[in-house]
Amino acid sequence: MRRLTDFTRRGAVALLAGGGFALAAATLPATAQDFPSEPITIVVPYSQGSNMSTYSRAVAPVLQDILGVPVVVKNVPGANGWLQVFSAKPDGTTIGVGDPTGQIGISIVQPLPYEVADFTWIGQFASGNQLLVASTAAGMKSLEDLAAAGKPIRCGTFGGLSAGAVQCAMLGAEKGFNISFVNTAGPPEVALAAVRGDIDIGSVGVNLWQDHIASGAVTPIVVWAAERDERVPDVPSLTDIGIPELGALTVYRAVFAPPGLPADRAKILRDALTKAQEDPRWKAFISEGNLDNNFEFSEAYADGLNKAFGAVKAQSELINEAFN
Rank of each mutant, 00 (worst) to 15 (best):
Q210C: 08
L16H: 09
P39I: 14
M1F: 11
M140L: 13
A117P: 06
D234E: 14
G289R: 07
S135K: 06
E144N: 12
V73W: 09
T239D: 05
T5P: 03
I286G: 03
I268D: 10
G289V: 03
V190F: 07
G164C: 02
A226M: 08
A12G: 12
T8L: 02
A185G: 11
L131Y: 02
A26W: 00
D6W: 13
A191S: 11
S287E: 14
I221N: 01
T27H: 14
A26S: 14
V166Q: 04
F177R: 02
I241L: 09
L273A: 08
A88Y: 05
D145N: 12
R154C: 03
F177M: 05
P90R: 02
N51I: 12
L63P: 11
P244K: 05
G205P: 02
D292M: 11
P220T: 09
A193T: 03
P113E: 04
A12V: 15
L208E: 14
A248G: 11
G81V: 03
L208K: 09
G260N: 04
T41F: 07
T184E: 03
G19T: 09
W282E: 11
Y114R: 05
F86D: 00
A138G: 06
A217H: 10
G102Y: 00
T54P: 03
L161G: 00
A138D: 08
P77K: 04
D145H: 13
M1C: 10
A22T: 06
T239G: 01
K307M: 13
A169L: 02
F309Y: 13
D271L: 06
G310M: 09
S142M: 10
L63S: 12
I199P: 00
I106T: 12
W121K: 05
A276E: 04
V312Q: 00
A284M: 12
K141T: 15
V222Y: 03
E288M: 12
A257N: 01
A225R: 05
G139W: 07
T31D: 14
E227F: 04
G202D: 01
A254T: 12
P45S: 09
Q130M: 15
E230L: 11
Q110D: 00
G98Y: 06
N324K: 05
I221T: 04
A165H: 00
T54L: 12
G289S: 09
E174Y: 02
L291N: 08
I95L: 08
N75M: 01
V218Q: 00
S50H: 10
Y55V: 06
E245I: 08
P45R: 05
A284Q: 15
Q48D: 15
V97Y: 07
E189P: 00
E144R: 14
R2S: 12
T8G: 12
A12M: 15
A314R: 03
I268W: 07
L273T: 07
M170V: 11
N306M: 15
E296D: 11
Q210E: 13
G172R: 04
R253M: 11
S316E: 01
A308L: 13
T120H: 06
G164E: 02
K89I: 03
E278R: 13
L305H: 01
G105H: 00
D118K: 12
D271H: 09
T27E: 14
E230S: 14
P188E: 05
Q33R: 15
Q33T: 13
R2V: 12
L15C: 09
W209A: 01
G128C: 04
E288H: 10
Q48A: 15
A284N: 14
L132V: 10
G19H: 07
A17D: 10
G19V: 06
Q48V: 14
A30C: 08
S162W: 01
